[in-house]
C-alpha cells in the first residue's frame, strides 16, 4: 500500500494517537484517557485536515485507531486505518483510486478474486428504490418504521429516520449487495464531514461514498466540507444530540475550525479499514483471524 501511494506522489504523514479532542459523531465512541486529558483518536481526520490547510498537498496516514464499541466478527476496538486526502480530486476520481488500491491489494494477496475485480457504483437512492420502492431522501419516518416492522422482528424505541435507513441497509440490503460496490450520494442527515450538493435530479445529497466488499463496509469517503461555519454548526448539532441521549460529552476541535477558516484546498478524502480489506482479499469472515491479538469477545 505504501508503494501504491509513493507511486502516486501522496506523502505519508504520522499524526498523534492521543489528542485533546475527538470525533463528535453520535455513534462513534472514543476512549478517553483521563490522565492525559485526551482521547485515543478514532481517525486521524482532524489532524490530517490541519496539515492540508497548512499546505501539505495530498497526504495519507496508515496506522492504528481506536473505537469504543462491542467487538464482533467485523469489529475490533483497535484497528488499522488507511486514511488519505487528494487535493483537487472529486469523489469519482477518488473512487477510481480506491478501486485501484483494492485491485493492488487483492493481486498482492494472490486472491482468487483477481486484480481485475470490477467495483460497481450504486446510488443510495437506487438501492432503496430497488429493495423497498422508496426514495430514501424523502421517505417519512412512519413509512420507514412500517417497512422495518414488516421486514424484521425489531425491538427499538426512539429511532430516527437515519437509524431506520441504516437498519434497513445493514440488515436487508447489505447481505444482497454485489460482491464489490460503492454506495454514493447519501441523505443529508448522514453528511458527517461531507459537502452537500444537488444531484442530477435536483435532490440535495451528501457527497459521500462507502465501499462494500462481500457485503462488508470497508471504506468511507467524502468530498470534503470546507466551510468553517457549516462545520461548526454540524459539531454543535452533534454535541446537542449527544447530550440529549446522555452520551459522553466531547469538546469542539477549535484548531480544526481555525484551519478551515484559514482555508483548506478543495479535496476528497477516504478512510479505509485495512483489517477488513485483508479479510476481503483472503476471503476470511472473522476479523479475529487477521489480527495477532484480537480483542476478547464473549462466546456467542
Amino acid at each position: 500500500m505504501r508503494e501504491f501511494f509513493a507511486q502516486r506522489g501522496v506523502l505519508e504523514v504520522d499524526t498523534p494517537t492521543l489528542m485533546p479532542t475527538t470525533a463528535t459523531d453520535i455513534y462513534i465512541d472514543s476512549y478517553r484517557v483521563d490522565s492525559a486529558a485526551s482521547f485515543l483518536q478514532t481517525s486521524p481526520e482532524f489532524a490530517l485536515k490541519r496539515l492540508l490547510a497548512a499546505g501539505s498537498g495530498s497526504i495519507y496516514q496508515l496506522g492504528k485507531v481506536f473505537r469504543r464499541e462491542a467487538p464482533s466478527k467485523r469489529h475490533n476496538h483497535e484497528f488499522t486505518l488507511c486514511e488519505w486526502y487528494r487535493v483537487g480530486m472529486n469523489l469519482n476520481q477518488l473512487m477510481d483510486e480506491v478501486e485501484a488500491l483494492v485491485q493492488t491489494v487483492f493481486s498482492a494477496a494472490g486472491s482468487q478474486r483477481t486484480a481485475a475485480i470490477k467495483i460497481e457504483r450504486l446510488s443510495y437512492r437506487a438501492l432503496f428504490e430497488t429493495h423497498f420502492a422508496i426514495d430514501p431522501h424523502r421517505v417519512s419516518l412512519d413509512k420507514l418504521a412500517a417497512l422495518a416492522e414488516q421486514s424484521l422482528d425489531i425491538v427499538a424505541a426512539d429511532l430516527s429516520r437515519t437509524d431506520y435507513l441504516q437498519l434497513l441497509l445493514s440488515h436487508c440490503i447489505e447481505p444482497n449487495l454485489p460482491e464489490a460496490c460503492f454506495i454514493f450520494d447519501y441523505p443529508v442527515e448522514q453528511a458527517a464531514l461531507a459537502r452537500l450538493e444537488n444531484d442530477e435530479v435536483g435532490q440535495l445529497v451528501a457527497r459521500r461514498f462507502e465501499l462494500f466488499l462481500g457485503g462488508m463496509e470497508v471504506a468511507n469517503g467524502y468530498f470534503e466540507l470546507l466551510d468553517q461555519a457549516e462545520q461548526r454548526a454540524r459539531f454543535v448539532a452533534d454535541i446537542a444530540e449527544r447530550a440529549r441521549r446522555g452520551f459522553d460529552e466531547v469538546p469542539i476541535d477549535e484548531a480544526l475550525l481555525a484551519a478551515l477558516a484559514e482555508g483548506m484546498p478543495e479535496c476528497s478524502g477516504v478512510a479505509l479499514g485495512v483489517d477488513r480489506l485483508v479479510m476481503a482479499a483472503l476471503g476470511i469472515d472473522d476479523i479475529a483471524r487477521v489480527i495477532a491479538f484480537p480483542q476478547p469477545r464473549p462466546s456467542a
Partner: peptide
Amino acid sequence: LENEVVKPGKGQAFNR
C-alpha cells in the same frame, strides 16, 4: 443461540 453486533461505521449499533 447467537448474538451478532451489527454496527454501521457512522450509525446506531444493533444486536441481531
